[in-house]
Amino acid sequence: MNKNEEILSRFSKESGYKVPEGYFEDFAKKMAASLPEREIKTEKATKWLRIRPYVYMAAMFAGVWCMMYLFNDMKGRTGSEYGYNEQLAEAMEDNQVARDVVDMSNIDDYDILQQMYEDNVDPSVFGDSSIN
């Protein structure tokens, strides 16, 4: 036992405080009686609450459908840019434009004929001596 404990050992563990007779029993009774009422929160089952899950589900399906629609639409538009372009088709009807395009790129007659044979196009239908 050290010095500090020696000093404290002179005292009992009783603090010397006391309470009125039957205080704790009375306190518990009075306290329980004075507790305010608590509101029990219950949600009233309204029409909206009943149909709410179905509305959420319908909205989810509509969202998925919209996403798929937009995705397909974008895919179609991307294909059409290269598949058919009115301005390009009109310009390519002029043989001079086609020749200028060929001249500007490093494509010679042999490359063009080879591509036409690969695409099963008969070069004679064009009736242009320069590429026959």
Binding site: E14, G16, P20
Partner: peptide, 11 residues
């Protein structure tokens, strides 16, 4: 509501 002795009071 305190009935401690002199030592308890000192503590």
């Amino acid at each position: 509501w305190f009935d401690g002795d002199e030592l308890q009071l000192e503590l």
